[in-house]
């Protein structure tokens, strides 16, 4: 019982600390870049003004044909899905 209470208290202290730091960051405008007109609030790429400029100029070089990536992508996905079923069953 005591253990449970202590863990709850610790949890709420941690949550309080996280919220305080978060509020401090926001109140002081920390972490923002002056040249960018957005921040963490742009949750999805569509919320970022002119997002194209960040993707069109560069990319990792892809050397293999498209279907190789697709097969690797699907194979890994299938394997992970099987692993998920196994974990859930266990």
């Amino acid at each position: 019982m005591n253990k449970k209470i202590i863990s709850r208290i610790l949890t709420w202290i941690f949550i309080g600390a996280v919220l305080s730091v978060c509020l401090y960051i926001m109140a002081n405008g920390l972490g923002l870049q002056p040249e960018l007109d957005f921040g963490a609030g742009a949750y999805y790429y569509a919320d970022i003004p002119d997002f194209d400029q960040y993707t069109e100029k560069a990319r990792f070089q892809a050397r293999l044909p498209y279907w190789v990536y697709l097969i690797l992508f699907l194979a890994w996905g299938a394997l992970m899905y099987a692993a998920w079923k196994w974990i859930d069953k266990k």
């Binding site: 293999l64 697709l70 690797l72 974990i87």
Partner: peptide
């Protein structure tokens, strides 16, 4: 779908290998 190939093996490796493992771990 074309974006799968767009970023190559490195991009796929960093995201597609890690993402499902994290989901399974958290599950």
């Amino acid at each position: 779908f074309s974006n799968i190939a767009r970023f190559g093996l490195y991009g796929l490796g960093i995201t597609w290998i890690v993402t499902p493992i994290v989901i399974l771990f958290m599950w």
